[in-house]
Design a binder for these strands. Structure first.
Length: 495
RNA sequence: UCCCCUGUAGCUCAGCUGGCAGAGCAAGUGGCUGUUAACCACUGGGUCCGGUGUUCGAACCACCGCGGGGGAGCCA
């Protein structure tokens, strides 16, 4: 193990004593070395540097060896150049024991302008040290392209690849940007519960949570007595934080949740996970128009942030994963979103005379083929579709005056389809109760939810955004299992 | 849950109507005056997913099982 003592060596290498490192290097070096991202941003002037990271690739010639090191701080590697005549070593082999793809190393040398094309700066290596080996005959990642399917089986190692490193950085930046967006606009971040005893949320199959000994119950042959379970009743993992966050909305005005969500649906697709992260803002005194405006601004903020702050990673995705990605994102960031009612959208679909697997008609749920057609062919850009038939939307959505539609809104984007679903909520007690009765939902389970309409009710709106789906859209990755570190799906929960 | 495709070297795949197991990349060794998906040469590398059956003979055909991928539905 290399403890803190290793910093003594680093300080010695820099020729400074620990007593004045604070002044010499600033706070960062007291605990952390400059990252490769920081080194690459420096002007190379022959300054001494220490780099720690993992070897991505090594190229050898008779005269010198080129080692590319990555520490994950950015997409780029830093190139270390080892001259054949490294002081104190007779041969390069002696100087580079076990330095292979995947190995962790420390190099010390000087940051110099690179004489060759391909990189502005490089490290002229004076000392190199193997920290952790990665023997080539056993290390599964090679210095070549691997299929995403293969890497999915190596979820613990795949983040060491270009693609998954880039996904991880974009994921981090987008998570932070989500908080930035809402915090800057006066929203409060609410932690809604993960465990719920309400099976009435109606958003899909739920995972049951229990502390009962299932095997013992099965052996006993007796029926399950949930009064003996931990909560004294059946409990589940949440499928949505919306109903809970609405209560906080009715006190803090602007709120949002951003947390894990669970669906036990046995769906095997590139767009579904059993465990995923969802963002759900909720705004009091905001009607459908305001909801649309915020949702639009939100998507454009996130896309713009990715383009500016993750430019290097996006460039990679544009080049290797989804050609045309950057242009498509730039268009979304600057194009005003078109607004269209469901009724108009269906009319356009019918008028298009395009061949669909499911023929569109008023009252039908828009299929993904319809959504893509609307945003890509009819509009040619992002579009907000509103006022859907009440039969195909949730009970809590505000009923429109026509008696047929509700104030729902879906945001559709090219290349992906629906990315946001939301609505103005029904805030009038009588209409909400009537709808619950019509749908034969268990009204007693919604007691606290109906209280919001009994006491100080307000018009309010909100929407939901699947975080992983946002990441698919921003990165161009085609499978949702590749934008989350450890995907959980039907029959898949390894690592 | 339904439908389709697929499983051969570390990886990606080829392997025709059933007849001695192949390529590229990776790895190892050697070469090369600065490489950058380095390049050139050579070398090693196989439970053809598992089981059963058909056949003189099965990677190939049939059946069962397991794994992987894609699509649909559901949805975020």
């Amino acid at each position: 193990m290399r403890g803190l003592s290793c910093y003594k060596e680093v300080y010695a290498f820099y020729g400074v004593t620990k007593s004045h490192t604070r002044q010499f290097f600033g706070e960062i070096l007291m605990t952390l070395l400059p990252t490769i991202k920081e080194l690459l941003a420096m002007e190379p002037e022959g300054q001494k540097v220490v780099v720690r990271g993992w070897v991505r690739t090594k190229r050898e010639t008779k005269q010198s060896v080129f080692i590319e090191i990555n520490d994950g701080s950015c997409f780029s590697n830093i190139q270390g150049v080892v001259a054949a005549s490294l002081p104190g070593k007779d041969t390069l082999k002696e100087a580079l024991p076990g330095i292979s793809t995947g190995a962790s190393v420390e190099i010390r040398g000087t940051l110099i302008p690179s004489p060759a094309k391909g990189q502005k700066a490089e490290v002229s290596v004076q000392e190199i040290e193997l920290i952790g080996e990665a023997p080539a005959d056993r290390y599964p990642l090679q210095k070549k392209a691997h299929s995403l399917e293969f890497l999915r089986e190596l979820a613990h190692l795949r983040v060491r690849t270009n693609t998954f490193g880039a996904v991880a950085r974009v994921r981090n930046r987008m998570a932070f940007a989500i908080h930035q967006f809402f915090q800057e606009r006066g929203f409060y971040y609410i932690h809604t519960p993960i465990i719920t005893t309400s099976d009435a949320e109606g958003a899909g199959a739920m995972f049951q949570v229990t502390a009962l000994d299932l095997e013992a119950i099965a052996k006993s042959g007796k029926p399950v007595d949930y009064e003996k379970d931990f909560f004294g009743k059946k409990a589940y993992l949440t499928v949505s934080g919306q109903l809970n966050v609405e209560t906080y909305c009715q006190a803090l005005s602007r709120v949002y949740t951003f947390g894990p969500t669970f669906r036990a649906e046995n769906s095997n697709t590139t767009r579904h996970l059993a465990e995923f992260w969802m963002i759900e803002p909720e705004m009091a005194f905001v009607e459908l128009e305001g909801n649309i405006a915020i949702a639009t601004e939100f998507i454009q903020f996130l896309v713009s942030t990715a383009l500016t702050d993750c430019a290097e990673d996006i460039a990679f995705f544009d080049q290797r994963v989804q050609p045309g990605l950057r242009e498509s994102l730039e268009k979304v960031a600057r194009t005003p979103f078109t607004h269209m009612t469901y009724t108009d959208a269906v009319r356009e679909l019918e008028a298009s005379r395009a061949e669909f697997e499911f023929t569109p008609y008023w009252g039908c749920d828009l299929q993904s083929e319809h959504e893509k057609f609307i945003t890509e062919k009819i509009v040619g850009g992002p579009v907000v579709v509103t006022d859907y038939p009440k039969e195909i939307k949730a009970f809590y959505m505000k009923q429109n005056k026509d008696g047929k539609t509700v104030a729902a809104m879906d945001v559709l984007v090219p290349r992906f389809g629906e990315i946001i679903g939301g609505s103005e909520r029904e805030w009038r007690l009588d209409l909400l109760e009537k709808r619950i009765d019509e749908l034969d939902l268990p009204k007693e389970a919604y007691g606290w939810y109906l209280d919001l309409r009994r006491f100080g009710s307000t018009p309010h709106s909100g929407f939901g955004l699947g975080f992983e789906r946002l990441l698919m859209f921003v990165t161009g990755m085609a499978n949702i299992r590749d934008v989350i570190p450890y995907p959980r799906a039907a029959r898949q929960a390894d690592f």
